[in-house]
Design a binder for these strands. Structure first.
Length: 420
RNA sequence: CGGGGCAUAGUAUAGUGGUAGUACGAGUGGUUUGGGACCAUUUAGUCUCGGUUCGAUUCCGAGUGCCCCGACCA
């Protein structure tokens, strides 16, 4: 993409109505636009990052048999009445609205009830199980206090996966598969080694649930980590019983601030029973389906990466989720830069081409702010030598690469998992 | 929801009970061109409502918005 066509404009100064690093940088760099407290729009660059994140999640969800759907954000209270969760006294984050005829509706804050109800006609016997259904969908939560930029908003996209199994043991198996898929997702996004599968409070059907907590000072959560075993527990379950149960040594636990980037939860029959989602087993007995739910917030994940990897000059994207792989800057060598841009584009390398007529300093500063993994500078020297300078955003090393080798240079560095 | 703070051009900030200033940005002309250049010129602003006052952007009250701490958080 030509930067002269990109409608967003980086700015030098941080917005005064943001305190969190992720919001400051993403707004400055033109990745997001703030609509109101806790509500952000994604601009072209931000949208591309979000798509990359969702692409990785999608691949991993499909890899464990997930089938993607897209459920409505407007919700009929009907299904919710079976669980009592339409009641404001039970769930206080609802946004509600009304039809012209005065029927009350809810705006999705999660989808257990509608999902469970939707699956009823499709799950009849044990032959229809197991199933895993997921979506990327906008959730609305009327938080009393939005905070931390895109980390805790009132409207956000969530990947929510729901599993449907015959038995608790089948659920346990699938749950572990999801856990492994989550590990792969966080590793691919670049935060694997800082992300801990963390024990958190469970529900009626299991002792614990698990949260994926990424160690980061900007986090809202507190976890305790045993580095040797990589076992972590949320502060909320930091009790003598739990520590004994998990055979942890209190003295070895290290307290850390962290961001909850995902969670996995065994629901059991908590929803299938009240909503009457049943199947017939081999003997013809009607049994409730055993369910699980598994969430990841792609936007929060993006914010976490910003918090973790940015430096004083701006954003620093891991290659796997960068909006473009290469930032091509022309410094007074437009002809060569144009040719290189065409070459890279033909090789299907994602390039943001700074074809604007601006001073070098501004181009460098903006490139640093945008944080694309590789910066390629085509300047006057390139005209004579046929070489361009390649620099990774994450370090200071500069490599000279000939213009004709550039496409294969970057093809070899293409992040894994990408199809093109 | 409890507590605290803030609200001035597109952005970031000064300042004053009496004609609102600076920087960046943007427009125009020119000189520049490898780390946010320079000159000239133009552009544009006091959150809303009410009160005090001859006069309010400034003081007072309410509202709204935003930020932070806490509470809350499938």
């Amino acid at each position: 993409m030509r930067q002269s066509h990109l409608f967003t404009i980086p700015r030098k100064e941080s917005p005064k109505d943001e305190e969190s690093l992720n919001a400051k940088l993403l707004i400055r760099a033109g990745y997001i636009h703030k609509e109101m407290a806790g509500v952000y729009s994604y601009l072209p660059l931000g949208r591309r990052v979000l798509e990359k994140v969702m692409g990785i999640i999608r691949e991993e969800m499909n890899g464990i048999g997930g089938q993607e759907v897209s459920m409505a954000a407007l919700q009929n209270p009907e299904a919710w009445k079976f669980t009592g969760r339409f009641d404001e006294g039970v769930v206080d984050v609802w946004f509600k609205t009304r039809l012209k005829n005065d029927t009350e509706l809810g705006l999705a804050f999660t989808h257990e009830e509608p999902m469970t109800a939707m699956m009823r006609p499709f799950i009849r016997s044990y032959r229809d199980l197991p199933r895993a259904v997921y979506q990327f969908q906008t959730k609305f939560r009327n938080e009393t206090r939005a905070k931390s930029g895109i980390m805790r908003g009132r409207e956000f996209i969530m990947k929510d996966l729901y599993s449907f199994s015959r038995s608790q043991s089948d659920l346990d198996m699938f749950y572990d598969e999801v856990a492994l898929a989550y590990d792969r997702i966080f590793a691919r996004v670049g935060i694997g080694e800082r992300t801990y599968k963390t024990f958190a409070s469970g529900g009626v059907f299991s002792k614990y649930s698990h949260e994926y907590q990424t160690v980061c000072d900007a986090g809202e959560d507190t976890i305790y980590i045993d580095e040797e075993s990589r076992i972590a527990i949320n502060k909320e379950v930091h009790t003598d019983e739990v520590i004994a149960d998990l055979r942890l040594d209190v003295s070895k636990l290290v307290e850390k601030k962290s961001i909850e980037v995902g969670n996995i939860f065994k629901l059991g029959t908590k929803f299938s029973e009240p909503l009457n989602l049943t199947y017939k087993d081999e003997e013809g007995a009607m049994l409730p389906v055993v369910m699980g739910s598994y969430g990841i917030g792609p936007g929060r994940l993006m914010g976490t990466v910003v918090e973790l990897f940015s430096d004083e000059r701006g954003l620093v994207w891991p290659e796997s989720i960068a909006p473009f792989q290469v930032h091509l800057l022309s410094l007074g060598a437009d002809e060569q830069a144009e040719a290189l841009y065409r070459l890279l584009s033909e090789a299907e390398i994602e390039v943001l081409y700074d074809d604007r007529d601006m001073r070098a300093g501004e181009k460098f500063a903006e490139a640093d702010l945008l944080g694309l993994p590789y910066r390629v500078v085509v300047g006057k020297k390139s005209i004579e030598t046929g070489m361009a300078e390649v620099k990774a955003r994450a370090n200071t090393d500069i490599e000279m690469v000939s213009l004709e080798d550039m496409a294969s240079f970057f093809s070899a560095r293409r992040p894994r998992g990408e199809k093109n």
